[in-house]
Design a protein around this nucleic acid. Structure first.
Lengths: 133, 133
DNA sequence: GCGTGATTACTCGGATACAAGATGTCCGAGTTTGAGCGG
DNA sequence: CCGCTCAAACTCGGACATCTTGTATCCGAGTAATCACGC
């Protein structure tokens, strides 16, 4: 149980876009160089971010990836969900009698919700502001 | 990023011990049969629970696993930490200039702490009581 | 000078490779209980 | 009846096998901008 490296990449890539290039598209090449990671692997993460509607891809020459309009509203949870998926962290694999739900699962899912609420309240834009000052 | 099946096993095994056999040692064989999982794999989880000080192992005939004294105080977090380890869920892999810490990492670790506080407040014994009524 | 085509700089998606971790099995060693047997 | 031995019922730990997932690379296809060339 750990957040994947991919999430780390995605969070830093988004932070870079918000902080340094809110309007111009940035190519994978530049982004990967800034972060010091592989281009091809980073591009997979960016593709996921596009599919989740957080950023926009601009094909062709001078293309790259650009933030969407709602940049102030992008939360940590949005990015994490884009990479890790939205599935629950815990799923009970036992059959409990008479259709009743698993109490253990309920507790763990409540705990998960605590974390998600926190991550939803934290916006990438706030971190970008802290960086600049 | 998911809780492992092993955690699922361990939580249910502990719930069984607290609810049904607070004093007598229970063998892996019986426990595995109740849960419907493999004996040998379950025993690995129980070994981890022993090393974390949550249960006690009784070797020899009529042996098995027995709860320790502080059974009322065992939290979900104790069990999860025993199986998954206590390492942080997130570790930033980038070098940030001038010794400053990664702001992203701080946010995610704070979120993790939210979840852990919740899991620490939930005791297995409370769930056992709910089951009985 | 203007349109047309070729080249270039990108993204996109699939196929592949590799390593690590989760899951599960097997077996030998150690430990306690209890039964059996000889005195 | 007492004590000794031995077998049975357990846990413990390591070695091993397998499968999934994360990480990473490579390549061909598609797309847009820019450059070159011919008229």
């Amino acid at each position: 149980m750990k957040f994947s490296q991919a999430t780390d990449y995605a969070l830093h890539a988004m932070l870079f876009l918000v902080a340094e290039a809110p309007d111009k598209p940035v190519s994978v090449q530049v982004l990967a160089e800034k972060l010091g990671v592989s281009q091809t692997y980073l591009s997979k993460m960016l593709t996921k971010l596009v599919k989740s509607g957080l950023i926009h891809s601009v094909p062709g020459a001078n293309g790259g990836y650009r933030l969407k309009r709602n940049r102030e509203e992008i939360s940590f949870l949005d990015i994490i969900h884009a990479i890790e998926g939205t599935a629950s962290l815990f799923e009970c694999s036992f059959k409990h009698g008479s259709g009743s739900e698993c109490l253990i699962q309920q507790v763990v899912m409540d705990a998960e919700r605590q974390m998600e609420q926190f991550l939803e309240s934290k916006k990438i834009a706030d971190i970008a502001k802290q960086l600049k000052q």
